[in-house]
């Protein structure tokens, strides 16, 4: 009986990790754009997530800016961060991973400046009309989930349209086969910059929502974001990769990956994992899921990947 009760309790507590997972899943869509479409591991996100949160909270609490407008500015700030990484990478020849780390580091200072040298700035749901919050009373969590779903639908819809345009095609070609893209007249440097820009814009939107959900913007809120994003992307791919081929479904599976990740996290916390050990746990999960394709390939050798250099 006790066991069943525990399960019931857990199920009742699910809306919170679901909402949180949806926000992180949204962020993971940004990661998907760089990691899967552009074929670049972009570590800017750890910084741009916090930038999004910081911009949103400061604008609403200190400048009285409308929260949706603040979200828009947060998006723009994230775009700027991605743009910076893109310039470092393409115009200054810095390897993508390093370029992302540099921007991320710089953003730490910038985010503190945005928050007026405070590491944490709170935003209260009673004082401000928030889009989402973790408050569970009065069915608020269901509203939060609904609004997150709306955000996801809009983002996925816009991305679906964008990656079907001439511009979007050229970005996908850049990530898929750089030489082919260039020999078809595509300026691959500019495509990488655009991809990184959009990706970090989306990450910052997620950061803005996350700050509202958790009630504050924190300079450390993005630490390890890339790992969670990768987790969502990879979990989604491992589970739905064979099933979903359509671009929209692929993006949605990333979101579901994020939700599943957070459900698992809340489960292991219930089972007694210490919060401080969470990052270790996350790293292990991602390492395992990243290794799955590797071991699969070892068991069943497939056709070799296309060579990327010109003969």
């Amino acid at each position: 009986m006790n066991f069943l009760e525990n399960i019931w309790q857990f199920i009742q507590s699910l809306p919170s990790p679901i909402a949180q997972g949806m926000i992180w899943g949204m962020m993971a869509i940004g990661v998907y754009i760089t990691y899967k479409i552009l074929d670049v591991a972009d570590l800017t996100v750890d910084g741009s997530l916090a930038t999004g949160g910081a911009v949103l909270v400061v604008l609403t609490t200190q400048y009285g800016v409308n929260i949706y407008l603040a979200m828009l500015v947060a998006f723009a700030a994230g775009c700027l961060a991605g743009f910076a990484t893109g310039i470092l990478h393409t115009k200054m020849g810095i390897p993508a991973i390093l370029a992302g780390i540099l921007t991320q580091l710089a953003l730490y200072s910038i985010n503190l400046r945005i928050m007026d040298d405070r590491a944490n700035v709170t935003i209260n749901r009673r004082t401000f009309q928030l889009i989402v919050s973790s408050y569970a009373g009065e069915n608020q969590l269901y509203w939060t989930i609904g609004k997150c779903a709306l955000f996801i639908v809009v983002i996925v819809g816009v991305l679906y349209w964008f990656f079907g345009t001439e511009m979007g095609h050229s970005i996908r070609a850049t990530g898929c086969n750089l030489n082919m893209a260039r020999s078809n007249g595509i300026n691959t440097d500019s495509r990488k910059i655009i991809g990184l820009t959009i990706s970090n814009g989306i990450v910052a939107i997620a950061g803005g929502l996350l700050a509202q959900f958790s009630g504050s913007a924190d300079v450390n809120m993005g630490r390890g974001a890339i790992v969670i994003g990768l987790a969502a992307v990879i979990i989604g791919e491992v589970i739905f990769g064979k099933l979903f081929n359509h671009f929209i479904l692929r993006l949605l599976s990333v979101v579901i990956g994020g939700v599943l990740y957070y459900i698992v996290i809340s489960l292991v916390l219930k089972l007694g994992l210490k919060t401080n050990d969470l990052k270790l746990f996350s790293a292990l999960i991602v390492a395992i899921f990243l290794a799955i394709p590797h071991f699969k390939a070892k068991l069943a050798p497939r056709r070799p990947k296309p060579k990327k250099e010109v003969e």
Binding site: F162, G164, T165, E166, M167, G168, H169, S170, R172, A173, A181, N184, G185, I186
Partner: peptide, 18 residues
């Protein structure tokens, strides 16, 4: 999509359908 990419070689890539 591959063919459409090649068809646009040397032309600006816009936000029109690919």
């Amino acid at each position: 999509e591959n063919l459409a990419l090649a068809l646009r070689r040397g032309k600006p890539r816009t936000l029109l359908p690919g």
